[in-house]
C-alpha cells in the first residue's frame, strides 16, 4: 500500500469514509440509524423543512444521528431558484447545522435535473458568505469548471437522475470531469446498487453520495454495508491502478517448462 493516509478533504472538513449517505425515505429512524452505522459514513445529508405545528409528539430525527461520528450536511433540495437555495442555506446554518451546504437547485420537476445557472448564482453568494459549497450538477465538464471557479469546495455530478437507481449513465463524462478537476468530485445521485458505487470510485471519484439505493432496498442495513465495501473496493482499485484492457489473452502461467 503506497498511500496510507487517504483522507477526503472538502474545505476544512476531513473524512476517512468516502461514502455520504442520506436520511430520507427510510421506513423509520431506527432502521436509518442502523443503516448509517453499517455504511461507515461520516457525512449524512438532511433537508430543511417547516416544522409540523400540528404534530408535537413527533421525535426529532437528529437524535438518531450520532454527531460525534457524523457530520450533518444540509441540502437545498426542493429549491427551484438561487434565491430559495440561498435562503435555505442560511436557515440551515441558523438551525445550528455545520457551515456547509449541498447546493441543489432543480430545474425540472419530473427529472429533477439541476438548474446550473441558478446553482451557480447561489454558489457565488454563499461562497462569499463563508459557506463551504458542494454543488450538485450535471455530468458536464463546462459547469464543473464554472463551479470550481466560483469557489465551490466540491462539485457533485450526477450519475443518473435522483432516486432513479440507473447507475453511472455516462462514465466518460464523469472521467472527463475528474481529469480536469481541482476540487474533490463526489458522484451524487443514481447509485442503485453496490457495483454502481464501485464504478464511480474506480473512475477516480473522490466520493459517492447516495440515499434511495440504501433507504429503499429490501434490507437497508445490509445494502448500507454493501455500499461501504463497494466504495472502499472502488477506491482501492482506483489507487492500485487497473491493468489496461487487451483484445487477446495473455497467459498468467509460464509458457516455458510445460511437460511435453
Amino acid at each position: 500500500m503506497v498511500k496510507i493516509d487517504d483522507l477526503l478533504r472538502i474545505g476544512d472538513f476531513k473524512f476517512t469514509s468516502r461514502l455520504f449517505i442520506g436520511t430520507g425515505k427510510y421506513a423509520n429512524f431506527e432502521i436509518m440509524k442502523m443503516a448509517h452505522e453499517a455504511s461507515g459514513a461520516e457525512v449524512v445529508t438532511v433537508a430543511i423543512r417547516r416544522v409540523d405545528l400540528n404534530d408535537k409528539g413527533k421525535e426529532s430525527m437528529l437524535s438518531y444521528i450520532d454527531t460525534n461520528k457524523i457530520t450533518i450536511l444540509p441540502n437545498t433540495a426542493g429549491c427551484f431558484t438561487a434565491e430559495e437555495a440561498i435562503r435555505t442555506a442560511r436557515l440551515a446554518k441558523a438551525a445550528g447545522l455545520p457551515n456547509w451546504i449541498k447546493l441543489e437547485v432543480i430545474g425540472d420537476q419530473k427529472t429533477l435535473m439541476p438548474d446550473n445557472e441558478e446553482t451557480l448564482k447561489a454558489t457565488k453568494v454563499l461562497v462569499k458568505e463563508g459557506f463551504t459549497v458542494l454543488a450538485y450538477t450535471n455530468d458536464d465538464i463546462v459547469y464543473a469548471k464554472k463551479f470550481e471557479e466560483a469557489g465551490a469546495a466540491s462539485v457533485m455530478p450526477l450519475g443518473a437522475p435522483i432516486g432513479s437507481g440507473q447507475g453511472i449513465l455516462n462514465p466518460n463524462n464523469i472521467k472527463i470531469i475528474l481529469e480536469n478537476a481541482k476540487v474533490p468530485i463526489i458522484v451524487d445521485a443514481g447509485v442503485g446498487t453496490a457495483s454502481d458505487a464501485t464504478i464511480a470510485m474506480e473512475l477516480g471519484a473522490d466520493g459517492v453520495l447516495l440515499n434511495t439505493g440504501v433507504a429503499l432496498a429490501k434490507d437497508p442495513v445490509r445494502m448500507a454495508r454493501a455500499m461501504k465495501l463497494a466504495v472502499e473496493s472502488g477506491r482501492d482499485a482506483f489507487l492500485a491502478g487497473r491493468i489496461p484492457k487487451k483484445l487477446y489473452a495473455s497467459a498468467s502461467s509460464p509458457i516455458e517448462g510445460v511437460m511435453r
Binding site: G22, T23, A47, P74, L91, L209, T212
Partner: peptide, 10 residues
C-alpha cells in the same frame, strides 16, 4: 414567521 428544522433528505 417560518420555523424550520432538519428532516430526512438526500
Amino acid at each position: 414567521l417560518e420555523i424550520v428544522k432538519a428532516v430526512g433528505g438526500g
